[in-house]
Design a protein around this nucleic acid. Structure first.
Lengths: 235, 235
DNA sequence: TGTATAATCAATAAATATATTGAATAATTG
DNA sequence: CAATTATTCAATATATTTATTGATTATACA
């Protein structure tokens, strides 16, 4: 829309500046709007593990397939995720590692600033007597000293798409079967998808019940990757 | 709300997990919603320079005082900004440096991922023949070699609240008066509030018209501070 | 104690976002 | 080429967000 109202050079420049600002800020806010929905944040957090199909995503976030699909459209339009087709399935992935970076920034900021968020996390951990969780930094030290056994309790497929070096894959629903093969006296560190993933909490509870010393890693595999630490693949 | 429908232990645990996830993701999305509005993003970007009153904020973002106030309430409820009173005025500030960190992450991600945002920036710079802008890294090198004159063209008050060491304060509306006192043959680097601030672009155009070699810094003072680089104060 | 004034509130209408439902699409595979 | 099926679309009702207007509040200072 070009205005034909006559105006002088200075006024035109002021209007140009305003249009520029409106352009950038509303562009950025549109992308941010795509992020500002609980279901879509959960999708981003999930896709940080690697590509998933619509049906799997829908199951994980406890929504209908149509609803999940619509949320994925929104994320795709905002350029936050991208797709590829294989056979009957369409796989969704994060559009770039920086998408996880933005999610990480929002996640840390809320845990820090919003008491309610911190509260929900503390309450949950407290209800399972597992408030303690170790940091990635502490883990790297323990790994160097060969002091711990490290368990990856995510689904086998996520382990396959990349994991922390020296981690053993023990998917949470196979823990009870494989628990006996673990060294009895060694400290066990368990990690999963991230701080809001409950697999590790669950595993720690079960391991403790069996008499093991177990602690969860505060953060998850994507956080490890984000720090530029080495990533391993099976074989 | 406690459900009295009888259910077994496993079902209860599954429900607990869902409630936990809904708690954290909706908490974070509420904070993100506060960020997902062009006016509020502009406010965050502005407050990164330091505290401002409601009236000043309203002027800067080109909104009514009542409207600006309402946006500020939203940001305050989301714990993204905080206030202090002095005399008749209430000053708003960012609640923590990490708020700028989240804004920075969103800003970088959009410039990277959203072609429209990149386009608006390029178009604006191109229309003033000043596509080139130097990075903070390049600036630190030039400063070490004593190769450049560094100008801070933000309002004097913002300079007073912190600036890049060795920068000279020349507010944009005083540039024409002070331009003659600048060394004629030396390269000039100009910086202002950030990549979406037009003061530096404006200054570069005017300096070039007067025969100087001038370039803008791509980013602004808050970006310098964010990197942990030294900050100076007048006197 | 009253007055000036910065900031907030309350009410509104218009625009946008959301989950649900059932139907339609498109691509693969037999 | 038809059948299968994962995914998307379209329509809907409800809920939320937004800018505007004018009135109200709360504090400093005379």
């Amino acid at each position: 829309m070009v205005s034909f109202v006559p105006c002088n050079r200075e006024q035109r420049i002021i209007m140009e500046k305003r249009q520029f600002k409106e352009g950038v800020y509303s562009g950025i806010s549109q992308m941010t709007k795509a992020l500002s929905n609980p279901n879509r944040l959960e999708i981003i957090d999930l896709l940080a593990q690697g590509e998933k199909t619509v049906e799997v995503i829908a199951q994980e976030i406890n929504a209908s397939v149509a609803n999940a699909s619509q949320h994925l459209q929104v994320l795709k339009q905002a350029r936050l995720v991208s797709t590829r087709r294989q056979g009957h399935f369409i796989y969704y992935t994060l559009a770039s590692p920086e998408v996880f970076g933005a999610w990480y920034a929002l996640r840390s900021l809320s845990i820090r600033q919003i008491p309610e968020v911190k509260q929900v996390i503390d309450d949950f951990r407290h209800s399972r007597d597992s408030l303690e969780a170790i940091s990635i930094e502490a883990l790297t030290e323990k790994l160097e000293l060969d002091e711990v056994v490290l368990l990856d309790v995510r689904p086998a497929e996520e382990y396959r798409m990349g994991h922390i070096p020296r981690a053993i894959s023990v998917p949470i629903d196979q823990l009870d079967l494989q628990v006996k093969s673990l060294p009895a006296r060694q400290e066990i560190i368990v990690y999963c998808r991230g701080p809001f993933c409950v697999f590790a909490d669950e595993a720690v509870v079960r391991l403790k019940n069996q008499g093991y010393r177990a602690t969860r890693l505060e953060e998850g595999f994507p956080d490890w990757k984000r720090l530029g630490l080495p990533v391993a693949f099976p074989q």
